[in-house]
Design a protein around this nucleic acid. Structure first.
Lengths: 194, 194
DNA sequence: GACGAATAGTTCGTCAGCGAAGTATCTTCA
DNA sequence: TGAAGATACTTCGCTGACGAACTATTCGTC
């Protein structure tokens, strides 16, 4: 494996090491670099997705909404509440979003005759079209950037990330506000949690 | 290597596969899983950081600002413009944030006698204290979750991510709107790119 | 030295999102 | 049958952020 040139994360780590202030907490270059790199990769993908949406005339939150609507088991239709949950939005936020998207004609709210509290949200033909065009404009930037790795390397990466993800999912489900201590992970490496 | 149980990303991938709509674009499970996992790891870290800040009485954006102020080469002081750049904020946003943080007493704006257009931003003693306490409350969740991996595995992960990050940094710097095709990566590997 | 361009911040109008409170509808159960 | 309570969504007031326009200062150049 050839030595790789410096990346932004390396520079970040070098810069930060000197400013570490928690005496009882070690500063771990590798950990810091990993987190920084994941951050910049995700930011890149987010920016890319956003510009794809904008190039088609959609705000990125509108694209997200259409997307959530389209990739579900009953494509193109859902209740505002479900949608809000999936998008991590408050009910109020969802109302606002649907309102504006309905005005733009991307979406339609329908009433449920069986239960008049309930609404249905459907993507309109135009909404679906714009969603598809955004998908196409997006191309698969994800595949492009992961293309720097071989299939084997991708698999390794995926497995390592999965171990971390599983650890998080097993965790205390972060709960609200209060930081409950995790189901101490397999430990072996005292997370030295403060 | 033992078979790992299913994680949320596995479920996401399985669910999404059926809804893939770009005929000319293959659907790559591994890529999708990698991106999903990085997303949930980063989200977890973000939530954790936020709740640490809140537990100390800081809004998460206030913590970010103090953090940017503290980890720089001249700790505790910077110009609004620099700060805005580092935080990815518009000048207007920065003004607002400083305004409210100054009202809260976390930060102080000072005038530069040499150039009266310029300001300096300094963290106050209270701001520094709250920042440190947030750092402590944060503990190192990053280290805790990466603790699921051995040092060797962490190094592997870091290297793989670095390859991707370098590819992105080398890229067309995403520019605005238009999707320019990257300096085709070293290629060699249309990997499993199915 | 003085006027035009550049630079540093601020103000203004707007928008998406939040939490809390409100409205309408349905469910439960005495 | 008819409250009391639960559920589904909306409205309201507020906040943080944005882009565009504005103010104040300094730099460059003739």
């Amino acid at each position: 494996m050839p030595a790789l040139p410096e990346d932004a994360a390396d520079r970040h780590v070098a810069r930060w090491r000197g400013h570490w202030v928690l005496e009882n907490q070690p500063y771990d270059d590798t950990v810091e670099a990993v987190v920084t790199r994941m951050g910049s990769i995700m930011r890149h993908l987010r920016d890319h997705k956003k510009s794809a949406a904008v190039s088609v005339g959609l705000e990125s939150h509108e694209y997200e909404t259409l997307h959530a609507l389209m990739i579900r088991d009953t494509p193109g239709t859902a209740s505002p509440t479900t949608l809000a949950d999936e998008l991590g939005l408050s009910p109020a936020g969802m109302s606002g979003r649907l309102e504006s998207m309905e005005r733009s004609g991307y979406v339609r709210r329908t009433t449920d005759p069986g239960d008049r509290r309930r609404l249905g949200v459907e993507a309109t033909a135009e909404g679906i079209d714009l969603w598809r065009r955004t998908m196409a404009a997006r191309g698969s930037e994800e595949e492009r950037i992961l293309g720097s790795l071989t299939a084997r390397e991708q698999a390794t990466l995926s497995r390592l990330l999965k171990r971390i993800a599983l650890d998080i999912e097993a965790g205390p489900t972060v709960a609200d506000g209060q930081r409950t201590r995790s189901t101490r992970p397999s430990s072996q490496t005292g997370p030295s949690d403060s």
